[in-house]
């Protein structure tokens, strides 16, 4: 069959085939957005958007996601650097294990956390240190669990792309190892750091599975934006759900565009 597709004719057919796939996919997404816009009316959309509940969800999502993103990046920087630079036996296995939270369903992670807080150790942390289960810190913990793996993955590729010789030269110029890291490697990683921060933040805003399992879905208490969609649909309030969906779409678009603006290119995951 591929014999028929030799030469310029084959090239044309191949180009059309690939471009049509792109067109079909684009039409699919545009169709979804248009159907949502057709379903809702501007005034009901605005009143849903500025309802107390949605404004609360926006505030809660933005705060928890920001805290979670900062914690994840602070953890991910040393971890990613260690995996990128160190060589030790079993490094490949550790590297793969750290990818687990990216592929495992967030609900499973949330359930695992919930089980942990039912063990004697977990329960005493929950009772005496910070209350995680069905509370706001639980949202942050769930988000951190899901997004830190992503942050590590992104930062590892950033550190991989930095030639270790920059640090070596810095050391011949008098820097100790930590000084070389802070004076040379971190500035070189600046774009990657910002991009990973934005991407993990956006992912935290959208996190639902782990959050709802650990922190629950109590309106006006642990109600993040995705939880708000879930609660609105559960009570058949489609207008409100659509309003929140648009908020999430806008956040995602702004995040991706700012990454492109900052790094000058699309960020590779």
């Amino acid at each position: 069959m591929f014999k028929i597709l030799r030469g310029a004719g084959g090239e044309r057919v191949f180009r059309w085939a690939t471009i049509s796939a792109l067109v079909v996919l684009a039409l699919f997404f545009i169709g979804i957005v248009v159907s949502m816009m057709a379903y809702t009316r501007w005034d009901t959309f605005v009143s849903a958007l500025f309802s107390e509940e949605i404004l609360f969800a926006i505030r809660l999502s933005v705060t928890t996601a920001t805290v979670a993103a900062v914690i994840s990046i602070l953890i991910a920087v040393p971890v990613a650097y260690a995996i990128s630079r160190a060589s030790f036996p079993g490094k490949d296995i550790v590297d793969s294990l750290l990818d687990l939270p990216i592929v495992i369903s967030p609900v499973a992670l949330g359930a695992a956390l919930l089980v942990f807080f039912n063990t004697p150790l977990g329960a005493s942390i929950d009772d005496n240190v910070i209350k995680f289960v069905f509370s706001v810190p639980g949202i942050i913990l769930a988000q951190v669990t899901v997004i830190s793996a992503l942050a590590i993955r992104l930062l590892k590729s950033t550190f991989d792309s930095i030639d270790p010789r920059y640090e070596q030269v810095a050391r011949t110029l008098g820097c100790s190892k930590p000084e070389a890291f802070f004076r040379v490697t971190l500035p070189l990683a600046k774009n990657g750091l910002i991009a990973s921060g934005i991407l993990t933040w956006a992912r935290a805003v959208g996190e639902f599975g782990a959050t709802v399992t650990l922190a629950g879905a109590t309106a006006m208490k642990t109600e993040t934006l995705p939880t708000a969609i879930f609660l609105s649909l559960a009570s058949a309030d489609v207008e409100k759900a659509i309003a929140v969906i648009f908020v999430l779409v806008i956040i995602a678009v702004v995040a991706l565009l700012s990454i492109r603006k900052i790094t000058g290119r699309r960020y590779q995951i």
């Binding site: 920059y166 030269v169 810095a170 011949t172 008098g174 100790s176």
Partner: peptide
């Protein structure tokens, strides 16, 4: 001793200037 304790100047083959 570590590099920073040797008091030497080193110019690598492709210079490795700090781009930032």
């Amino acid at each position: 001793l570590a590099s920073e304790e040797r008091n030497l100047g080193y110019v690598p083959q492709d210079y490795v200037l700090f781009p930032f």
